[in-house]
């Protein structure tokens, strides 16, 4: 049983832009999945296709094992969502906005609507602003109202597209806490973000997008494991040092202007250092660095903006 699964999911917009390029998502039931990628990498477009808002150019997608977009009416009421920021009727208050969404749901029980709306508002801390017009909400309040809409009913899956966008650090923490609570109820959470640091603490799995392609997917622990440590030797003779490192069987031995480096892999650093000294390399400095998750992430997604087309 998977919460979300796609195969070769592709979206080419009119005008030729390939926004999502053959991605195979696999989101297990019950996990918190961080869907990461820089601006314009295709996260929102993917989510739109998952929810049946946009139609894929090719490929397939299933939500809770129901094919989309065909099965929208059978499955979407089990899925809460926030897509590309909050959006409500500015002239209605928070409560009426949720009532409107609930009224559109053909499987929602009208008798419990008032109670459910109150509970959802309470859960995101908006009860005091329930009668305030949406127009007058602050950005954080708007964001919370959108999350409340996703919580109007018990859900099996919640899809949140950048839920912390525009929030202050405190608000970001609150949203993280909320996501943890939702996940603790057994709900699968699919949350997109362009910052790994923002979701790192709550995710069990991550998928990383880069210009429409899924460049990594798996448990967060697996991403951590791939954060291989490198040894760096500061020396006057980097070429010779790099040769020694390579001779020791270390991968990716490189010579810089003042240092040589290589992937440490399973080797212990002490024998490597001893071997360098034995080979007559004047070692001025010897360091072992494991890249941070953030460095890895940047390595996967590339630096700066990915804007093409």
């Amino acid at each position: 049983m998977t919460a979300i699964s796609t195969g070769g999911l592709t979206k080419r917009f009119r005008g030729g832009q390939l926004a999502v390029d053959h991605i195979d998502l696999d989101v297990p039931h019950g996990c918190v999945y961080g869907f990461l990628g820089p601006n314009g990498s295709g996260k929102t477009t993917t989510i739109r296709m998952l929810l049946g808002l946009a139609f894929p150019t090719s490929g397939r997608a299933t939500l809770l094992d129901v094919p989309m977009p065909g099965g929208a009416s059978q499955v979407l009421h089990r899925v809460g969502s926030l897509v590309e920021g909050p959006a409500f009727y500015p002239y209605l208050n928070g409560e009426d906005n949720l009532a409107r969404m609930d009224a559109a749901d053909r499987t929602a029980d009208p008798r419990t609507a008032g109670r459910r709306i109150g509970a959802a508002l309470d859960r995101v801390g908006l009860l005091p602003a329930a009668k305030k017009r949406y127009r007058n909400y602050s950005l954080g309040m708007k964001q919370r109202l959108a999350i409340a809409a996703g919580l109007l009913r018990p859900r099996e899956l919640i899809i949140l597209d950048e839920p912390t966008n525009g929030l202050d650090p405190q608000g970001t923490r609150e949203v993280r806490t909320l996501i943890r609570q939702i996940a603790a109820d057994g709900t699968t959470v699919f949350v997109s973000s362009h910052l790994l640091a923002e979701v790192e603490q709550i995710c069990s799995h991550v998928g990383v997008m880069r210009t429409g392609r899924l460049v990594f997917q798996g448990p967060l622990a697996e991403l951590r494991r791939s954060a291989a440590a490198r040894v760096t030797v500061r020396t006057a003779d980097p070429e010779a040092a790099a040769k020694v490192l390579a001779a020791l069987g270390l991968a990716d031995a490189l010579a810089g202007s003042h240092e040589a480096s290589a992937v440490l892999g399973d080797a212990e650093p002490e024998p490597v250092c001893a071997e360098l000294v034995r080979a007559g390399i004047g070692v001025r400095g010897f360091t072992v660095d494991a890249p941070s998750l953030e460095d890895l992430f940047v390595g996967l997604t590339g630096e700066g903006f990915d804007v093409d087309g």
Partner: peptide
Amino acid sequence: GYGTLRYLLAVPAGRTRL
């Protein structure tokens, strides 16, 4: 324009029904 359309469809309101 408000963006409520995407949320109505995600509810799901159903396109024909809406």
